[in-house]
Simulated scan of single mutants.
Amino acid sequence: MIRFLFRFVGLWVLAGAFVALVLDGVRSIASSEIVTTPLGVTWLAVSPDLLARFQAFVEGSVSVTAWEYLVVPVLGAPLFAVLGVAGALLLLIGRRPAA
């Protein structure tokens, strides 16, 4: 049952990555240059409070250095890449074991 849940969520996350890739592609074609939407920009647009709370949590629980050197680069990565990697990992976790 849990494998099904991982696969189900993984497929939805991969679908989100595909949608983000298509949107970035359309924007790139319209502007005649490569345009990507960073994860941080999308997260800030969707829920700025949650991003601020996550930053406070990481800086308070782990360290400011972890925020600067681990989280900030991920927030600067293209949304489709982050969702694609997360979806692929969820699919790998939910795969059936080899017989």
Rank of each mutant, 00 (worst) to 15 (best):
E33W: 11
L75S: 05
F6P: 03
P78N: 05
L11K: 07
W43C: 09
V85M: 14
F4T: 15
L44M: 14
L90D: 10
A52C: 00
S31C: 06
G60K: 09
A30F: 08
E33K: 15
V26N: 01
V19W: 13
V26M: 11
P38Y: 00
L75R: 02
L91E: 00
L44D: 10
P97C: 03
I93D: 01
P97E: 12
Y69V: 15
G76H: 12
D49E: 07
V46F: 04
A99S: 13
V13W: 02
A17G: 01
F6D: 01
V58S: 01
L5G: 13
T36P: 02
A30N: 10
A56L: 14
V26I: 13
L21A: 14
I2L: 10
G94S: 06
R96M: 09
L50P: 06
V85L: 14
V46D: 00
A98W: 14
V13G: 11
L51S: 02
V9F: 14
F18P: 00
A77G: 00
G25Y: 10
V82H: 07
L75V: 02
P73L: 03
L5R: 08
G84V: 06
T42Y: 12
G60Y: 01
V58M: 04
A20T: 01
F57V: 08
V82L: 09
F80T: 05
S31P: 10
S31F: 12
A86I: 13
L23T: 05
F54M: 08
P73N: 06
I34H: 06
D49L: 08
R96E: 14
A99G: 13
Y69N: 15
A30K: 12
D49Q: 09
V35Y: 11
G60W: 08
I29K: 11
R95S: 07
A15V: 10
A15S: 12
R53T: 06
A88N: 04
E68G: 07
I93P: 00
L14N: 06
V82P: 02
L23R: 12
